[in-house]
Structure formats: C-alpha cells, structure tokens
C-alpha cells in the first residue's frame, strides 16, 4: 500500500517535470531563434539573403561580411568598419564600470557600517537615479559637461555613466552589506583597523558575488547604452552602439544585410562574453544580496 502511494507520487512528479522541461525548451528556442537567424545570415553572401529564404542555412558560407563589418564597412562618412568604435566602447566601459562599482561598494559600506543621521534618506535619494528616465537628465548633463570642458569627449561619457551607475551599484552593495554582520566591523575596530583597512581587508574579500552582479549589470547597461552615446560623444568618441546604428542606417548604396547582422553580433559579443564567464556568479550573487537586508 505504502509502496503504491510512493509510486504514484513519483509518477506525478515525472509528469510535472516533463511539462516544465517542455515549456522551458520552448522558451529557450523562442529566444535563441533570432540569434540563430543573425548568425546564419551573417555568414551568407548577400545574394543568398536577397534571393529569398532568411531561414535557410548558408549554401556558400563566407566570413567576408564579418571582415567587412569589422574593418571596411562604411560608418557615417568614413569606411573604417566598427573597429575604432569597438575600441571606443571598451575605453568607455572599463573605467566607467570600475569606477561606479568601486564607488558603489564604498557607498554601501558607509551606508551600512558607518551609519549617520539621515543615511536612509540619503540612500533613498540615491535610489532615485535608478528610476529617473535617461531623457530627463540629458540637458542638465550636457550643461555640466560643457562647464567641465568635457563635452564630446570620452572622459565626459565615462563621467555620465559613472554618475548614472552609482545609484544601482550603491543599491547592490548596500543590500549585500546590510546582511554582513556588523560585529565583524566592531571586532576589526577593536583590533585596530581603520576605515579603509576594514573595507579592504574585511569587506572586499567577501564581496565577490555582489561585485560580479554589479559588474555584469553595469557592463551590460553601459555597453548597450545608445542615448548617452549619441548625445554626448563627439565623432571621435562614439561608442559601438552609435556606430552600429550609423552602419545600418547608412542611406547610400545597397543595404548589406549580412554585414549588418555581423556588426550586430559583434556589438553583442562582449556582453555575451561577460555573461557566460561570470553568469553563474550572477544568479548566486543576486540571491545572496536579496535574501537578507
């Protein structure tokens, strides 16, 4: 009797599980399909695309569109390919992510372990920056960049992203550190460690998971940003997203769809790379930060 009951329970479990897997696989395919189309069309000669079936596999695979998108395609007025803009994006993203993450960690540390009068209000105000639409800050930001003499430059763009990123990075680190026992900080104080020493030796070594979350988040956001790039970057400082737009929107000559596909994939590769390398920490870190605090 007992055995029969157990058997039924197992079978129900199996049916539910099958159902869950079917749904999951369906959605995975749903999301992977566009990427699949981009990949197969980026390695087709243009004639194969224009002559008909977008879904067909390439008859005559070629990497010429990739090479073209990277180094010879017409971007705006010059035929430089995406290469210089890719470099611009890297030069913008790396410092912007590093600085906003570092400041977020420091803010989180202060807001949880060095509490002061009005700290929750201050934190609340910082959270506004997470929810204010980008468009609202465009004009004030342009004015400030002008005052600072950073208009149109790469450092200016970095500053914009840092300022915009601090809200999120502070939120992440504050919630993560809120669950971190304050007794450890007190103990370190008695041991004779100062403000930065406690941060460096006690807090940072255990901040791995949330740092990864913050880096992925910031990297993805800043890399994919178009509005700030198109508004604040001069011709020489334009990031990848703006260049990709220029490539696809260029009104002269034939639309080279295969090159466009290749360029779009190139633009998405770095975020994909970061996610694949650090993704498993992402989920873990999100959990760690959200359970308590």
């Amino acid at each position: 009797m007992a055995i029969a009951t157990q058997d039924t329970a197992v079978r129900t479990g199996r049916i539910t599980r099958t159902f869950i897997y079917v749904v999951l696989i369906f959605f995975a395919l749903f999301y992977l399909l566009p990427f699949f189309i981009m990949v197969i069309n980026s390695v087709k000669p243009l004639s194969e695309i224009t002559s008909g079936n977008m879904l067909a596999l390439p008859q005559d695979p070629t990497f010429a569109p990739w090479a073209s998108a990277w180094s010879t395609a017409q971007i705006g007025v010059e035929a430089t390919g995406l290469k210089p803009y890719f470099l611009n994006s890297i030069l913008m993203v790396v410092p912007a992510v590093a600085i906003s993450t570092a400041l977020g960690a420091l803010n989180g540390y202060i807001l949880t372990k060095w509490r002061f009068r009005g700290d929750t209000i201050l934190f609340g105000l910082m959270l506004f920056s997470c929810f204010i639409p980008f468009q609202i800050v465009l004009i004030p930001m342009a004015r400030i960049l002008g005052e600072l003499g950073l208009s149109g430059s790469l450092p200016g763009l970095i500053l914009v992203h840092v300022v915009y990123g601090i809200g999120f990075s502070t939120l992440y680190f504050r919630n993560y550190y809120a669950a971190f026992p304050t007794e450890l900080v007190k103990s370190a104080m008695i041991d004779g460690a100062g403000f930065f020493r406690i941060f460096w030796r006690i807090m940072l070594p255990v901040s791995g998971p949330i740092a990864v979350v913050c880096i992925i988040w910031q990297f993805t956001n800043i890399w994919n940003d178009f509005l700030f790039g198109v508004s604040f970057a001069g011709l020489s400082a334009q990031p990848m997203t703006v260049a990709l737009n220029n490539l696809v929107q260029s009104s002269t000559g034939v639309k080279e769809y295969n090159v466009h596909f290749a360029g779009a994939i190139l633009a998405a590769l770095p975020t994909l790379f970061v996610y694949i390398v650090a993704g498993r920490y992402f989920v873990r870190g999100l959990m760690a930060g959200s359970v308590k605090g």
Partner: peptide, 9 residues
C-alpha cells in the same frame, strides 16, 4: 562577540 565575529576570509 556573541556571533564570534571571525573574519570569514
């Protein structure tokens, strides 16, 4: 301390 407050790292 009550929680021992050992540095985990």
């Amino acid at each position: 301390f009550q929680s021992y407050a050992l540095y985990p790292n």
